[in-house]
């Protein structure tokens, strides 16, 4: 579904991503873990067309991506839920959802899409008329995910969906991601929370200082000490 080769991205003179390569196969849940400032968000923002890479190849759904805008990539099924949720607080929950649904061309199945989203996140149906800015952090994360699902993603990029949530809600987020995967979604999950990501992901990449340090399944990575060293001593 996604193949990235030698991707490098910089902010001015600072190179944040230094030539990384990674792959996500159809139906796979792949984790991208690493500490603060490793370059994970930069990678996702580049994949979704917000940032321009210095060099590198991105092949998505069989097509090589050149200079594409975020809105056109979204319409082709490359959907990012950015770090920090970014729901439109001055729009109602319904308006947030409506905007996402509007980007899908064919009107067939839109009602079913909405039903499925409400099944996953029943709270949104109750809060439909309220402003999204009034939702709690966990509810906003659900809304951000719901919006992304309405876009009918072929590949879902999730940037730290558990960030800033209470432990119980963190578990719920990981459960939701697991459910989506079980339903056949293809997901690239960026997280600082290594242990929970390793627990649900098919494979993980470990990123540190703009480079991929290791790759493998949970058991492969846990048997080596690369994960803990990538976190500079944080407990995994």
């Amino acid at each position: 579904m996604l193949a990235v080769e030698d991707l490098a991205v910089s902010y001015g003179k600072v190179t944040a991503v230094k030539g990384i390569s990674l792959r996500v196969g159809e139906g796979e849940l792949v984790g991208l873990i690493g500490a603060n400032g490793a370059g994970k968000s930069t990678t996702l923002l580049t994949l979704s067309g917000v940032l321009r890479p210095d060099r590198g190849n991105i092949v998505f759904d069989g097509k090589k991506l050149g200079r594409r805008t975020p809105e056109s990539l979204v319409r082709d099924g490359l959907v990012l839920v950015p770090e920090g949720r970014h729901v439109f607080g001055r729009l109602t929950v319904e308006e947030n959802l409506r905007l996402a649904a509007a980007a899908v061309r064919s009107s067939a199945g839109k009602a079913e899409d909405l039903e499925r989203v409400f099944e996953l996140f029943p709270i949104l149906r109750e809060r439909l008329r309220g402003y999204a800015g009034r939702l709690s952090g966990g509810e906003q994360q659900q809304l951000a995910l719901a919006r992304a699902l309405l876009l009918r993603p072929k590949l879902l990029l999730l940037d730290e969906p558990s960030l800033g949530l209470a432990p119980l809600l963190v578990d719920r987020v990981f459960d939701t991601v697991d459910t989506l995967r079980a339903d056949g979604a293809t997901i690239l999950l960026v997280e600082q929370n290594a242990s929970q990501t390793l627990a649900i992901a098919d494979r993980c990449y470990v990123m540190q200082a703009g480079a991929i340090q290791a790759e493998g399944t949970a058991s492969e990575l846990q048997s080596s000490d690369v994960v803990s060293s990538a976190y500079l001593g944080t407990v995994v």
Partner: peptide, 17 residues
């Protein structure tokens, strides 16, 4: 609605199409 969304957060508006 898209205009209001874009006025609040232009980048995110583009990210939802």
């Amino acid at each position: 609605i898209a205009m209001r969304g874009a006025a609040e957060d232009f980048r995110t508006a583009r990210l939802i199409g």
